[in-house]
Design a binder for these strands. Structure first.
Lengths: 220, 220
DNA sequence: ATAAAAATTTAGACTCACCTAAATTTTTAT
DNA sequence: ATAAAAATTTAGGTGAGTCTAAATTTTTAT
């Protein structure tokens, strides 16, 4: 039903709206799609005609229930393919995003549900992002940011909120991947950088900018 | 480089030309692509400009070396994905073709080579069709047709030359899949139908039309 | 050899997803 | 409150890949 371009818009609106909560502006979409605002307007009118978004001129756009369903399907496919590539094909977590951007548009539900089973029904992708269920529900994964943890606490890394390959490569080098056990040894007041103990290795420094993009939960 | 539509034309020209040997007519392409001859002409001009085919007006079309390379890559991807779906995801051999038609256009070479390794470098797909190598060579698999075997001979089923789902389903029911050991018990002169022993089961009849589309090799 | 039939190409048009330039609406700053 | 700035939409246009109808070339049959 939805074309490749339409699927990409719906997915993007979902992400930019904070999981469908807020309105998204034409300009924000133009920036992310690497197109012009006028092109976005054209597409929004088309999506509105298909009842995939609520759109009023000059007022921004929100997903309809139907649009959100499509968006979540696309996100589900994307994240399952990422798990496949990392767990089965041996890709690194910083390599899989662009390939998943293509694979996510293969529509067969049978394929995706069998892939899901083959992967043992993973609940999150290699970056810790939750995988929408076959029924179209996004599991709520509410984690803290590492930058908010106080000195002396021990936490488990659960994911990232920044997906740039360079950031992910940096984290891998530091041994900071989902599942890593992290103790906050010290926090520097002047720049909020942190000294961490990661698993059983020696101490590492991370900047506030890095800590802000690492999602954690407190260890039990 | 080559768009989805272009890849489909190149793959089709490869198949219709008998692996690149003969010229293919505009009408043959129009029939198979479910488009009109005029549309095919447009596309052939474009492919010729890109040096993917040799094309002279009214004279039919042949792949260039470059075009054949692209065609073989697409066929390689298609067949590897079919192996994946059957061997890893548990699809039946009559279900995978349409999904592979989509997956074959995911271009990442890294993805395909890792998939190839994950599948243990298969040499043929679930229908017995050979898988082009990463280097772009089509392994020559020269088999006999079952209809040409004489009574009393034992052969091994190697593949099919007809891929319709209904045909494949019929074969599955009869236990005729690549690897099956088949003995020709009797051949009826009047309609050339055959009585077969398939693996260790009781005898089965197949029509000439079926036997003509089954590829075999003689058992050693 | 030539006329009819078949195959193919040309001409002109359509949709999709994008573009630029100009017009309009909303927001911001004074 | 209003003018300037920013955001957005409208108008008109593009290339990819398709279409129909008409023109042209090749093939077939007599």
């Amino acid at each position: 039903m939805a074309s490749l371009a339409e699927e990409n818009y719906l997915k993007l609106i979902y992400h930019l709206s904070g999981s469908g909560a807020d309105e998204v502006s034409t300009n924000a979409l133009a920036e992310q799609t690497q197109t012009r605002a006028a092109s976005v307007t054209d597409m929004l009118r088309k999506l509105a005609e298909k009842n995939l978004v609520h759109y009023k001129k000059y007022q921004g756009v929100r997903l309809t229930a139907e649009g959100q369903e499509v968006a979540l399907q696309v996100i589900r496919r994307h994240r399952l393919w990422e798990v496949f590539m990392v767990q089965k094909l041996g890709f690194r977590w910083d390599e899989v995003h662009p390939i998943a951007e293509e694979l996510e548009h293969i529509a067969s539900e049978e394929l995706i549900n069998r892939l899901d089973a083959f992967l043992d029904f993973p609940v999150s992708d290699p970056h810790g992002d939750p995988i929408p269920t076959a029924a179209g529900k996004m599991p709520s994964a509410e984690y803290e940011k590492l930058c908010e943890v106080t000195a002396g606490k021990q936490v488990t890394m659960m994911g990232v909120s920044e997906h740039a390959a360079s950031f992910l490569q940096f984290l891998s080098k530091a041994g900071l991947i989902p599942g890593s056990v992290v103790s906050v040894l010290e926090i520097n007041d002047f720049d909020r950088s942190m000294l961490l103990k990661i698993n059983e290795s020696g101490p590492s420094f991370v900047s506030y900018e890095v800590a802000r993009n690492i999602l954690i939960k407190f260890s039990v």
